[in-house]
Amino acid sequence: MTNHETPPAPSGIVDWLIGPARQNATPEEVVGGVAERLVESGVPLLRVRIGQSVANPLISAWGVIWSREGGPESYTVPRGMLATGSYEGSPFKHVITTRKSYHRSLENLVTGQDHAVLFELAESGSTDYLAMPVAYGDGSVQACAFTTDRPGGFSDSEIGLIESLAPAIGAALEPAAMRHSMASLLQVYLGSGPAERIGKGAFRRGQTTAIDAAVLITDLRDSSGMSERLDPDTLLKRLDAYFEVVVDAIRAQGGDVLKFVGDGVLAVFPADEEGSRPEACRRAARAVLDAFACPAAAGMRFVAALHVGPVVYGNIGSLDRLDFTVVGPTVNYLSRLEGVAKTLDRRAVCSREVAAVLPDGATRSLGSQTLKGFAEPREVFELWLPDGASS
């Protein structure tokens, strides 16, 4: 490592981090702002990466990578990745477990001794690597890494400058990370639409919105029998596989999964604009067909029902326990349609209102059916499946 002279950092970098950046900057803006200000001060950065652990059942971490050519971009780390070789023995693990910085020249790496990630960085043009801990107020430690492509690497003064920013970086990133993690967790448990609404302040009981939407419900057949035949672990794996098939299909078509009720899935496809009801119905129907056509659904027996109409969308519940869901006559009618699907042994049914806006040939009438709670019989339609079969 050589001692290149570096101009002092801009006097406002710490003030920016603990002021405007801490108050309202996104993680991408924080990381990008730090990198750009360091470059302005003369530090020849090639790449900056800051990772964040997160309390989320689907991902173990997320973070931001800034590059000289591309700017800042966010990324996520799937849950389970921390148990692989990409994390074990890595500089990030060293920083997090020891709470100390890790510095390594990338110009003289040793095969079998240095971690694979360092070789990858060297192959991409980096000559020096510095990882340091960033402590948060809750006691957790996050890791951030800086690389340069200058021959000889960072100077001692540059390393000192970067490390001196750790407290201010932590002050700026912690609230941004909390906002990001909260939004991520809400989305996992509530769906994108509800998470966005609650994030914007719609979290009080009675805060509801009347919307027009296509509503979908699915239900697994013979779940009671499976619970008796299968051991708990096998049963849960079957349920998870079924939920994954249905939820992936719903999300791919822009729907929001509102809840799991036993082995049932309730989802909504909002008609966001006037006149978009047909499109909401088509997306909901496509989600059903895609779920049944998914190779992973082979051997699964579940039913689906579709209806469309006005629903009340928002928070309901007791004083200290709320649920974000949809209620109203449209939802009540949907549950009756699901019962018809089971009674008639059909995999997918829909109401007349849905059938009326789907393409010709997408449905066929099953005639007038008596629905519990409704005085007059209602016409019910079968949604044709990808293979043309009816059950």
Rank of each mutant, 00 (worst) to 15 (best):
101 S>D: 12
168 A>L: 10
84 T>M: 09
272 D>V: 12
59 I>P: 02
337 L>F: 00
373 G>F: 11
242 Y>V: 00
308 V>C: 07
271 A>I: 02
110 V>R: 14
25 A>D: 15
168 A>M: 08
55 A>V: 15
383 L>N: 09
384 W>A: 07
303 V>F: 09
215 V>I: 14
9 A>R: 00
298 A>G: 06
233 D>K: 09
66 W>Q: 09
98 T>Q: 10
374 F>D: 08
224 S>W: 01
203 F>I: 12
248 D>R: 15
310 P>T: 02
92 F>Q: 04
21 A>Y: 05
181 S>E: 15
134 V>Y: 10
221 R>F: 02
75 Y>M: 12
137 G>Q: 15
286 R>E: 08
17 L>I: 03
154 F>D: 03
183 A>V: 06
127 T>V: 00
219 D>Y: 05
254 G>N: 13
183 A>M: 14
390 S>C: 08
123 E>P: 00
342 K>V: 04
355 A>F: 08
362 A>N: 11
229 R>N: 05
218 T>I: 04
31 V>N: 07
37 R>K: 00
149 D>I: 05
165 L>D: 01
52 Q>F: 15
298 A>Y: 03
294 C>V: 04
136 Y>R: 09
347 R>K: 12
146 F>Y: 15
247 V>M: 07
25 A>V: 14
53 S>F: 15
336 R>F: 11
40 E>Y: 00
231 D>N: 14
3 N>S: 15
293 A>D: 07
23 Q>S: 07
332 N>I: 10
208 T>V: 15
194 P>R: 04
120 E>Q: 14
231 D>I: 13
363 T>F: 01
199 G>N: 12
256 D>M: 04
133 P>Q: 13
104 R>H: 12
327 V>C: 00
76 T>W: 06
288 V>G: 08
218 T>N: 06
40 E>K: 02
74 S>T: 13
164 S>P: 05
126 S>V: 06
325 T>I: 07
37 R>Q: 00
187 Q>V: 06
91 P>N: 09
186 L>W: 13
355 A>Y: 10
341 A>Q: 02
353 E>D: 15
51 G>T: 10
38 L>P: 00
309 G>C: 02
178 M>P: 00
248 D>A: 15
61 A>F: 11
29 E>G: 04
22 R>Y: 03
19 G>A: 05
353 E>P: 10
115 H>R: 01
60 S>A: 12
298 A>I: 03
277 R>H: 03
118 L>H: 13
97 T>Q: 06
318 S>P: 01
381 F>M: 00
281 C>R: 02
361 G>Q: 04
206 G>V: 06
358 L>Q: 00
305 A>H: 09
332 N>E: 04
282 R>T: 01
164 S>Y: 07
372 K>N: 12
122 A>Y: 08
209 T>I: 01
139 G>I: 03
222 D>F: 14
281 C>M: 03
317 G>V: 01
57 P>I: 02
224 S>Y: 01
119 F>S: 10
320 D>R: 11
114 D>G: 06
335 S>T: 13
30 V>T: 03
101 S>K: 13
